Simulated assay, not measured.
Amino acid sequence: MELKKNPQVDLSRDSGLYFVIGLTIVLFAVWRMLEHKTYSTAEEFVTIMQVMDDIDEEVPVTHMQTNFTPPPPPAAPDVISIVEDMEEVEETLIESTESSQDIYVNDAVVAVDEVEVVEEEEEITVPFAVIEEVPIFPGCEGLADNEARKACFNQKIQEHIKNNFKYPSTALELGIQGKVYVQFEINSKGKVAHINKRGPDKLLEDEAVRIIAMLPNMTPGNQRGRPATVRYGVPINFVMQ
């Protein structure tokens, strides 16, 4: 005997519908979970002000200060002496020093003989090449001829430069060399003054000035019978060997 299934009780008949309904429910639940938002709740604080009914205030104890009675003034002396404060003051008369139109001033008359005329000598500066009488360097006093004194002067200047020449050490280290032109004056007192220099470096110029400043005092030169300032120039050559 063959068994037959009742179509009313067949469970697989609506399985597709149930699957779709279940899938829809699951998708809806997932969508709601994704769209769900949470908010942090702010805690409310309640401030309570406590007021005390009984306030006990401590009042500071004060003391009343009594008035201090000053001591009585000293008693007056029995005998009061009266001193006269009026003194005689001598008045000093101050005469005015201002002049007015009413005052006549006598003219001062000076005689011509009382005026002393002083002739001021003008300092003359003459180049060494044209001076009438050249300055006399120490050691050249015995020469009477002016040309001989010039030659002796030039020779003594060269000897002085050689004896006092000292090459600056810094210039040697830096390799500085060259010629320094020095011009100076021998004034009417026979002293060296107004030294001017021109060279390739300050180190060489300073050494040249030092050498010329060491020149001794000389007998001043004469021009027209009067002591004159003589201008002299000399080159100093700094060469490393």
Rank of each mutant, 00 (worst) to 15 (best):
Q177C: 05
V192L: 04
P60M: 06
L172H: 05
Q101V: 07
M214V: 00
E114Y: 12
K37E: 12
P7V: 01
A75M: 02
R13E: 12
E132N: 06
K191H: 12
L11D: 00
E147W: 01
P60K: 09
F128N: 00
T97E: 14
D107C: 09
S99N: 03
I236W: 03
Q183P: 00
E133Y: 13
S100P: 01
E116R: 10
V115P: 06
Y232N: 02
V51F: 06
S100L: 00
P73Q: 04
F137V: 05
R149N: 07
E2R: 07
T41K: 15
K37I: 03
L93W: 01
M86W: 01
Y167N: 02
Q183W: 02
G225W: 06
P77V: 07
F184D: 06
T219V: 09
G199R: 13
M86H: 06
V180H: 03
E123W: 06
V89G: 05
K191Y: 12
P127N: 12
Y39F: 14
G221H: 03
E43L: 13
P74I: 07
K37F: 02
A111S: 14
V51A: 04
D54G: 04
G175W: 06
E87H: 10
K150F: 10
I48N: 11
P71R: 13
G16T: 11
F238D: 11
D78T: 14
F28D: 10
S81M: 08
A151N: 10
D78V: 10
P227V: 14
I211G: 12
A75F: 04
S169M: 13
P73D: 07
E207Y: 02
D206C: 02
E116M: 11
A144K: 08
A148R: 11
P227Y: 11
L174C: 03
I80S: 13
T170P: 00
I212R: 00
D107M: 12
I103T: 08
N237S: 10
V109D: 12
Y39T: 11
V209I: 15
I157N: 01
L3R: 13
F165V: 09
P71C: 09
E84R: 05
C152R: 15
P227G: 12
V115Y: 14
V234G: 01
Q241H: 01
V30T: 14
R198Q: 07
C152N: 10
P127Y: 02
T62N: 07
Q158R: 12
H160N: 01
V83L: 03
M33Q: 04
I176Q: 15
I157L: 15
Y167F: 14
M218P: 02
N154V: 15
E43Y: 11
E121C: 08
F165Q: 03
T219L: 10
R210D: 06
G16I: 15
P71V: 10
F137E: 05
G221V: 00
I131D: 08
G199E: 06
S96H: 04
V118E: 01
V9L: 07
E173P: 00
G139H: 12
A228S: 09
N196E: 09
E205T: 06
Q223H: 02
